[in-house]
Design a protein around this nucleic acid. Structure first.
Length: 112
DNA sequence: ACTTTGACTTCGG
DNA sequence: TCCGAAGCCAAAG
């Protein structure tokens, strides 16, 4: 799993970004956004700066956050205030037909 | 086997 | 738009 997620992250090309949730899903583990974060923190050699929170927000605080933003802008990713312009720069993962955990899970109770 | 741990996400206010 | 609460889930201790 750590491997699957790492691979997914490595697929994000320069000048593009993705989100924890999207990466998790692409790796075959929807709803495991937090694990993506953990992997980014543990495994090195990954383009960590290309993974953002939902909506293109940067989750890292302080210096690290600043650096992430700096690196992304260097790659050409533009920001709108606090968010990356995810609409135009989000990476679309190749459909690797991995079903693993993706199966059997339905949407949340419409209740509410 | 149980508890803690995340660079999360969505929703209501 | 910002904040807190609740939901989520595999890995590590």
């Amino acid at each position: 799993m750590v491997t699957a997620i790492s691979n997914a992250i490595r697929q994000i090309p320069r000048g593009r970004v993705s989100t924890y949730g999207a990466v998790a899903k692409a790796a075959g583990y929807p709803r495991c956004a937090r694990h993506v974060a953990k992997v980014l923190n543990q495994v090195d050699g990954l383009p960590w700066q290309r993974v953002l929170g939902s909506g293109g927000r940067i989750s890292l605080r302080g210096e690290l956050g600043m650096e992430q933003r700096f690196l992304l802008e260097s790659e050409g990713v533009r920001f709108r205030g606090k968010r990356a312009d995810i609409k135009t720069f989000e990476h679309r993962f190749a459909p690797t037909g991995r079903k693993l955990r993706a199966v059997g899970r339905q949407k949340r109770l419409p209740g509410k």
